[in-house]
């Protein structure tokens, strides 16, 4: 039925449809670009100097303190052997914040009873992956944390 010959109606439909699409594009393109948040101004960290000392961590009842590494939350804690270790503090299951349980000798997520060993390896409960470790260096009283260079 449809003839191959271009018709006035067909031409108008293309102009109208194209115009409508172009208008919607011109409206929604800036809106979508606007909604996407700009990347944060924080530079990539190579190393972070903590604002507290080993003594401050020892004074904590749970023998642990939290720190911000860029936009990431980290936890630094004292093991039974008296060693300082640091891990990403965001549970790999559903993004709760993990805590140090010196009484159990584990890193524990209270939201769904997720358990990690002291090196951050997931050992029981729902967490699918281990917690990423930080490298901890001490220079006298000052503690530095950093990520392993790729």
């Amino acid at each position: 039925m449809a003839s191959e010959k271009p018709t006035r109606r067909g031409f108008l439909e293309i102009i109208l449809g194209g115009g409508t699409l172009a208008t919607l594009g011109a409206i929604f393109y800036p809106i979508i670009r606007y909604i996407i948040p700009p990347a944060g101004g924080e530079a990539k960290l190579s190393q972070l100097k903590l604002q507290f000392t080993r003594a401050d961590i020892e004074a904590e009842p749970k023998k642990a303190k939290y720190f911000k590494y860029g936009r990431e939350l980290g936890i630094i804690y004292l093991t039974e052997q008296g060693e300082l270790m640091a891990l990403a503090a965001t549970c790999t299951h559903l993004d709760c914040t993990v805590q140090h349980r010196p009484d159990l000798g584990i890193i524990w997520c209270s939201c769904h009873n997720g358990r990690y060993d002291m090196t951050g390896k997931n050992i029981s409960g729902p967490p699918p992956r281990p917690l990423e470790p930080f490298i901890v260096k001490q220079d006298g009283d000052v503690i530095f944390v950093s990520r392993e260079e790729a």
Binding site: P30, I31, R33, Y34, I36, P37, P38, G41
Partner: peptide, 9 residues
Amino acid sequence: SEVEFGWLI
């Protein structure tokens, strides 16, 4: 100044 098209909105 930072958000794309923020000035426009």
